[in-house]
Structures are given as structure tokens and as C-alpha cells.
Amino acid sequence: MSAATASGGGRSPGTTRRSLPERSWFRTGVFVALAVLLVTGALYAIGAGSVHLSIGQMLDALTGRDASLRRIVWDIRLPRMLLAALVGMNLAVSGLILQAVMSNPLADPSIIGVSSGAGLLGIGVMLVAPSRLALVTPAAFAGAMGAAAAIFLLAWEGGIQPLRIILAGVAVSALCGAGISAFMVLFSDRVAGALMFMNGAMSMRGWTEVRGLWPYSLVALALALCFARRLNVLVLGDDAAGSMGMNVQANRVFFTALAAVLAASAVSAVGLLGFVGLIVPHLVRMVLGPDHRLTVPGSILAGAALLVASDTLSRTVFSPIEIPVGITMTALGVPFFLFLLRRAL
């Protein structure tokens, strides 16, 4: 017996060395780190602002012991933080699902026309009926789902193929983009509010948007977690998935619709917000590997943490001026997008 074998340093010929993402302790550490980042970011988001609050002051405000701070925490900062977390979860998981279904590492919710459909009806309500702003959220959701349905119909030909979805999405997005431009030209005197919606603004959002969003998030994210194993089969390709007994077309329709609901609900709440569905899935896969049983919950935590941090940065870095979180996400997303392109070439 060699010294290396006796000391435990050698390996039998059939033993393979597991990579870090395959080690349970590493996976546990990643999820703990993501949870800590999310909780830390959430506490900082509630405490940061023109009035800085300690954790003790936050607790006093939430329990009602300090009525003067209750409105700041309960009515303004807490719902905004929760909304950012929900939107981040939805967009991140939506992007993860689309990248798996379409076998396209650069796919995100905008590729199926969800963002453009939501923008068309949402901005249309803002500009045509500015006194009916309460209708913006349901109109944006209807527009997003309508655009997704149109893409399904255009892409269907004995089934749905990823390339046809992408081409149909480009066509519908271009049509909706032309409609948005037409609205902005015809109602140029009312464009200010629409610009905020187009850049994913979190300002003036509260419990109404949270209550409207969380049921969709809860149901759709639960379905994504439950059926994550099917995504692992789907990414193997149509032939391999079919040989394993999977109904490829039915699962592709199901997951695309699930991604559309996640993205539509998020966009209808805060407006057009890009790059979350592109950045987060790649970062999570780089750390946890390709198994969707890990990347779906990882994307939920990472998406929430990223958008909470980005929104806090957007409203504090240039205080008292607040910039839309969509601009911050673009500033973060473009360099990462170029990094992905460089790796792919």
C-alpha cells in the first residue's frame, strides 16, 4: 500500500472527484449566504433613507410603540421592500425557466413579448385616461398575457419550437413597441408618468401592489419548485426527453405559460424592468450548477436580494433625488451581458 493510499490521499480507480456545486456542504453554505444577503438587504432597505433607523427603531415602529415612525416603516418602506423582493423572485425564475425551455442562455421575459405587451396597455391607460391610474396594473397584466397568448398562436404549428417562439416574440415586441411610440407621440404632454413606468419605478408603490402580486408569486413559484425536475429533463433536448416518456410539447407550453405569468405579474406591478431574468439565472448556475432543483430556489433568493439591493441603491445614492430601479439594473446588467457574450464567443 502506498503512503498516499494509507494516509487517505489516494483514490480508488472508480472514484471520481466531486466538484464544489456537487458537495452538500457547499450547497447549504450558498443557500445560507443568499438568505443572509436577503435579510441584511431587507433590513438595510427599511432602515436607509432620509430618516435613518436602527433595528430597535424599526421594531418600535412595527409594534406601534413609536407612532411617529410607524408611517415611514409600515406604510412606505416595508411594502416597497416586499414588492421589490417579489418582483425580483418572479423575474429571476421566469428568466431561468425560459432559458431552459428555449435552450437559449440569453433568454429573459422580454423574449416572449411580456414586457412590451404590458407596456403597451399600461402606458396606454396612463396617457389616454390619466385619471384612472388604478387601472394601470390590471391593464398591464392583461397586455402581458395577451402578448404571450398571441405569441403562442403565432408560434404554434403542430407544437411549439423554441426558435418559433423567439421569432414570434420579436415580431410581437416590435408591434407593441410601435404602439407605445404612437401613444407617446399622440399624448406627448403626458409622457412624464409613462417614462417612470418604462424604467421600472418603485416609487409610490405600496401595499396595493403587494396584495395584487403575492398570490401570483406564491402559486407560480410553488409550481416552479414542484416541477423543477421536469426542467432538468427538458433541457436534454426533445429526443432525449421524449425517450424518457415526457410529453415535450405539453411541458414546453406549461413552463412558457408559467414564465409568462411570473413576468406579467411583476411587470404590471412596477413597469418594464430588464436584466433581472438574465443576470440572476446565470449567477446561480455558475455557483450551484445546472440542476433546476437547486437553481429554482437559488434564483428565488438571489432575485429577491438583487432587486431589494438595487432599489435601495436607486433611492439612496443620489438622495434626495431618486432614480428608477430599471436604470440601476441596466447599469449592472449591460456589463454582465457583455461578459456573457465574451464567454460565448
Results as ranks from 00 to 15, higher is better:
Ala302Leu: 11
Thr28Glu: 01
Val210Cys: 09
Ala33Thr: 12
Ser2Leu: 09
Val128Asp: 13
Met126Phe: 09
Leu133Thr: 15
Ala168Cys: 09
Ile72Pro: 13
Leu218Ala: 11
Arg71Cys: 07
Thr312Trp: 04
Leu38Pro: 04
Ala250Ile: 00
Ala331Thr: 10
Arg132Pro: 04
Val235Thr: 01
Arg11Asp: 06
Gly177Tyr: 08
Val210Pro: 06
Arg27His: 04
Leu307Gly: 05
Val170Pro: 09
Arg315Pro: 10
Val317Asn: 03
Ile76Asn: 08
Asp60Pro: 07
Val334Trp: 14
Asp75Pro: 11
Ser173Ile: 12
Ser7Phe: 11
Ala42Asp: 02
Leu167Pro: 09
Asn232Cys: 01
Leu301Cys: 05
Ala149Gly: 10
Ala149Asp: 05
Ala241Asn: 02
Ala260Met: 03
Gly245Pro: 01
Leu82Pro: 02
Leu86Asn: 00
Leu121Gly: 13
Val317Phe: 10
Gly179Glu: 09
Ser203Trp: 10
Ala118His: 11
Ile321Met: 11
Ala194Gly: 12
Gly274Phe: 11
Arg205Phe: 04
Tyr216Phe: 12
Thr40Phe: 11
Ser173Arg: 13
Val170Thr: 13
Asp238Gly: 02
Phe187His: 15
Leu120Asn: 10
Glu322Lys: 07
Val276Met: 08
Ala3Gln: 12
Met246His: 02
Gly271Ala: 04
Gly245Asn: 02
Ser131Asn: 05
Arg190Ile: 08
Leu186Gln: 06
Ser12Trp: 13
Gly146Ala: 11
Met198Ser: 15
Met204Phe: 09
Thr5Cys: 14
Ile46Trp: 06
Phe275His: 02
Ser94Val: 01
Val235Arg: 00
Ile327Leu: 12
Phe227Ala: 01
Trp214Phe: 14
Leu43Gln: 01
Val261Ile: 13
Ser314Lys: 00
Ala140Met: 12
Ile151Arg: 03
Arg18Leu: 14
Ser314Leu: 03
Ser116Gly: 15
Ala302Val: 05
Arg205His: 03
Leu121Ile: 13
Ala194Ile: 07
Leu34Met: 13
Ala302Pro: 05
Leu20Pro: 08
Leu135Val: 14
Met198Ile: 13
Gly9Ala: 15
Leu262Ala: 06
Gly326Val: 07
Glu209Asp: 05
Ala260Lys: 02
Phe183Gln: 06
Phe152Asp: 01
Gly169Leu: 12
Arg70Ser: 15
Leu288Gly: 01
Gly289Gln: 01
